[in-house]
Structure formats: structure tokens, C-alpha cells
Design a protein around this nucleic acid. Sequence first.
RNA 1: GGCGCGUUGGCAGAGUGGUUAUGCAGCGGAUUGCAAAUCCGUGGACAUCGGUUCGAUUCCGGUACGCGCCUCCA
Length: 452
Amino acid sequence: MSLQIYDTLAGTKRPFTPLKPGHIGIYVCGMTVYDRCHLGHGRVLVAFDAIVRYLRYRGFDVHYVRNITDVDDKIFARASERGIPFTELTSQMIEAMHADEAALGCQSPDVEPRATDHVGLMIALIERLMTKGAAYQGDSGDVYFRVSAFTDYGKLNNRQLDDMLAGARVAVADDKESPADFVLWKRAKEGEASWESPFGAGRPGWHIECSAMSMDQLGESFDIHGGGPDLKFPHHENEIAQSEAATGCTFAHYWMHAGAVRVHDEKMSKSLGNFVTLEQLFKDVHPEVVRFFLLQSQYRSAITFTPDALKQAEVAYGRLVQALPDTVEAVDSDAMFQFQELMDDDFNTPRAIALMFDLCNVGTPTARAAMQSIGVILGLFQAGRDAFVTQSQALKAAHSGLTDQAIEQLLRDRQNARAAKDFARADEIRDQLASAGVVIEDSVDGTRWHRQ
RNA sequence: GGCGCGUUGGCAGAGUGGUUAUGCAGCGGAUUGCAAAUCCGUGGACAUCGGUUCGAUUCCGGUACGCGCCUCCA
């Protein structure tokens, strides 16, 4: 079977055919850098990282582009709240994002274009749209995209323009020809960063940056465009409109959207304030566990985050880590073939993980080697077994009431009690340790312990 | 109101027109002073009502409930 990808625009899985054989250009909408990343951002990072890793494993030469939105109302607002220049805020947040991304085991995109570095390209694209009659400047000085100039408007989200106008909730700027028209260029406001342009000083609207930068990196027509679930509308719809109106050719050939992360049956989002940041999660569990947790669901399905679910993932992943082979072995090629079949079906990472457990249960050297290979392709096992255990234990020690020294002392007391056949005392100590989250294992070569 | 998605065993989460998902938890056994860890074994599910079919959790239609988008949000 060949590679199938679910295309949001088609509403179904489609066999994947790259525009240029062997090569794939992919553009993913990245972060607006005004705050720390939460688990929803993490999901997009991990999903597309795993996808890109797999495509490369499959032999494609992948050019992975992910933008950084570093001009935006929220950025200006947050920077002025904190009394710092907006560029200082964005550079802090970009640094934090890169740290989170690295912790999750994601490879950096090949290119990470920033909006502020490409304003010239955006201006050029807006001028092109004006020349074609697809853009106009209102009395306020803002420049808008003329939605009526693009007959396919709504195709990504299956929407009719009339329906959208009827249900419009957004306050309509009175210099728009139509409420559905969206801004390409915002006139400069007092005290805010702005750029000179033929339409006057101002700054770009949100959508235009992705059209300009994706086409700059990947050409006017490219293979895959991805992003989070909340970008389908209006962001990606508007990207299609302005890009295709300008070029006259198909913009992205496959549209991929990750599913939402939920908390208590609500979408995790900044606006609802119900988000948990990656930074917070990394205090409780090893970042690889977060990655594993995310990959346990297919990238398009909704995930409900609960601390218990993360705990389950930790236990399950720990078992796989323990089964990593000590030596380099030949890989079970049959298993790798199965893996490819599973992943070729729209990147079915949950089944790939199930296969890893099957291999773990088989337990032979070649099976365990295959399990490791699969994990590595999915970006797991990056710390290695010993470091993973050490790092996980260190996290738990930070939450524990007992120091390592106290634990060692209790174990010596217990050992003495056992030697004296005072099992009641020995069990009492074991219970005490257990209630502090410390599990002990007696074996012929002594007693081992770990924090649970 | 418009568009779309979901409802699987205690929990997480795949998939299939007739045969074991997988993981966590549970239960039984081996092992252990007792445990833990490990190994072996094991019960348990497809929201609801109709239809198609020899046969549907799986296809089609209705219903209920839930969710997402329609405004910035990954």
C-alpha cells in the first residue's frame, strides 16, 4: 500500500503524490510568540515532527518550514504590559519555545522564517493582489482582501459566503466592502512598530505572512500545509484565498490539521485559560513521556488531558524503555514492514506503538531491536534507558518528602530487621517507604529501590 | 442558524462485515519470608432505534448525548 494522507480540503484520505518525485515541501503554521507553549502547541510540534521523521525514513527529501509570528496585537499588548520592547518579549518566547521543542525531542525545522524579516515580501504580495483587483484600501487606510474576487472562498471549510455573513459575530469595520473581507495591511497606530509601504506606514495582517513566507520557501504551489485545528478557519481559508487569487494556481496540495487537546471536555486554549504549559508538565514527568502520551493518539483525534492519563503513559513508556536492547542486534524486518504499513495509513502512531508492545512481549533480540528502531523513527528513546531512568527519578525526588540518604538508612534498618527475622519491623519500614512513593525490590544481589 | 467531528470493555486508545488490537488497572498462577519486579494465563466493549445482509460494533438512515469551528487561539 502506498502512503495515504488525510486531506482536510478533500475531507478524506488521499494517496500521497509529491509534486516533485522524492521531494516534499511542507509548511506548518507555528507559534505566535507572546507566551509559553502549552500542551496543544506541543501536540502540533510533536505530530509534525513525527510525520517529518517518518517521511524522511520513507526516503523523501523533506523541506520542513515552520514560521514564527512575531508581530501581532497580543504581542504588543503583552510587551507593553511588561514594559519591555516587543522584540525583547518575542526573543524570550522564541528561546523558551525552542527549549520546549528540544525537550519534546523534536528536530528543528529546516527553516523558521519570522514575519518581521519578510514584510517586504508581504507588501509585494499585497501589491500583486491590488493589481489583480483582489485587494483595496479602505478610507481608514487599512488594506483588505476582496473576498468576492475569489470564487472558491470557503472551500477548505465547506462554507458558503452567504451563510458566513448571516452568522457573522465579528464587529464589521465600516470601510470594508463586505463583512467577510479581511485585513492585509493595518495602518500604523501611534506608538506601535510599523513599516513603510506604498499603502502608508503600517504592519501586515495575520494571514498574509504565511502566504508570503511559504511561497518564498516552497514556491507558489507546494505539497503539504499543516497546523493546529483552530487555524482551519479563518486563517487557512484566507491563506488559500489570497495565495490562489494572486498566483492563479493551487496553493497547498494537502492540508493537514492536528486534533485538539481538551481539558474537562473543553478545548485547551489561551482564551479559556484552561491550558497547562509544557514547562509545568516537564516538572512532573520526563518530556519523553509527554511525547509518548501525544503519540498514543492518532494526530487528528481529540485528546483529553488528565494527570491520570499522563501517569498511565509514564508507566507504559517505562516498560518499553526497560526493554531496550543492550547491544546492537539485527532488526526484525517483518516488523519494520508492518510498521510501514501502519504509518502509511495517515500516520497511525497508536498502532505503531501497539506494535512496539507486541515486539516487547515477543522479547527476542531482533524483536527488541525492531521495537527500538520504530521508537527512534517516532522520535522516542532519545535519552536512552539509563538517562531516562535517572532523569525521571530526579524529577520524582524533587517532589518527595524523603531524601535518598533517608531512604538508604531505612533500607539498612530493614535489612537488619530481616536478618534478625523481625519481618513485622521490616514490613513496617517497607510500608513507610511505599507511602512516600518509594518501591523496593529485593533480589539475590541486594535490594534495589525506585520512586514511583 | 451554518459547517464538521465524535460516542468502543474500569480508564486510555486502534481497528474490522463473520477470527486476540495494544497499554494501564483487575483477577489467577509461577516466584518471594511477605512484597515488588518479572514471566505465564485470564474475564470484560463496541450510545440508541430502524434498514441492507446468510451475518453489522464495522455499511446506510433516524434519534439522543457530547465536542469543534463560524471572533484572537496550535
